[in-house]
């Protein structure tokens, strides 16, 4: 083998390695994020406001906006749920175009009746869900949602919790989150993309 040919072949190898490396480098981040996205959500069974089991498969067939909150939350929770019902109205495709789901992170105070009446406050269909403490912990973990009880100086407790809404497509796949800081314009665009 001549010196020149060997040199040429080495360069070709270097080029292949560089291209391979580039492809790997480009692919890796998107692989990781799609894996992470795929781990948000997944099938669950909680308890509906009628006290009966509510499997997440009942949400399939239309997009859903899932919010974790609690009924003793006077500010952020009603603000978020009222905003979602308003945005759904602005979508102008009827109440059936999007499920709005309220999952309590305070199952000790919020039984089926409490989540049911709370959900009925908004003058438009909202699905209220509760469950055992273990059920709620499991679903929180599935969604990467956080909550923590905080004692109130005047007695009783409040609950710190994830402020964002989880937007799922009609197959129950996670698509995006909706943060309270996002403008209604962005929020509406996100909801439209859910289909």
């Amino acid at each position: 083998m001549s010196h020149q040919r060997l040199r040429m072949m080495l360069w070709v190898l270097v080029a292949i390695a560089a291209i391979g490396g580039l492809i790997l480098a480009l692919q890796r981040p998107s692989d990781v994020s799609s894996q992470q996205m795929a781990t948000i959500g997944g099938p669950f069974t909680l308890t509906g406001s009628d006290g009966k089991p509510f499997p997440s498969s009942r949400l399939n067939g239309k997009p859903a906006a899932i919010f974790f909150g609690f009924t003793h939350c006077p500010d952020v929770c009603p603000t978020t749920l009222a905003r979602l019902t308003k945005l759904r109205r602005q979508l102008d495709k009827g109440d059936q175009a999007l499920s709005i789901v309220f999952i309590t992170v305070d199952p000790e105070r919020d039984g089926p009746a409490e989540v049911g009446t709370y959900a009925s406050l908004f003058g438009a269909p909202v699905v209220g869900l509760t469950g055992s403490v273990a059920d709620i912990e499991r679903v929180k973990k599935q969604f990467g949602a956080f909550s923590e009880k905080v004692d109130q100086p005047g007695g009783g407790y409040s609950v710190d919790h994830t402020a964002s809404v989880f937007l799922m497509d009609r197959n129950g796949q996670f698509v995006a989150t909706l943060a309270p800081e996002e403008s209604d314009g962005i929020a509406l665009a996100k909801l439209k993309r859910l289909g």
């Binding site: 500010d75 952020v76 009603p78 905080v150 109130q152 100086p153 994830t162 402020a163 943060a179 309270p180």
Partner: peptide, 29 residues
């Protein structure tokens, strides 16, 4: 109410200062 790192936290606010020639608007969130 504050959203810190995506977590909504509600705390007692203590006294609220109302500066001269200014207004405090309490709004949702």
């Amino acid at each position: 109410n504050e959203v810190v790192n995506g977590i909504a936290k509600m705390r007692m606010a203590g006294e609220i200062n109302v500066p001269a020639h200014d207004k405090i608007e309490m709004k949702p969130g």
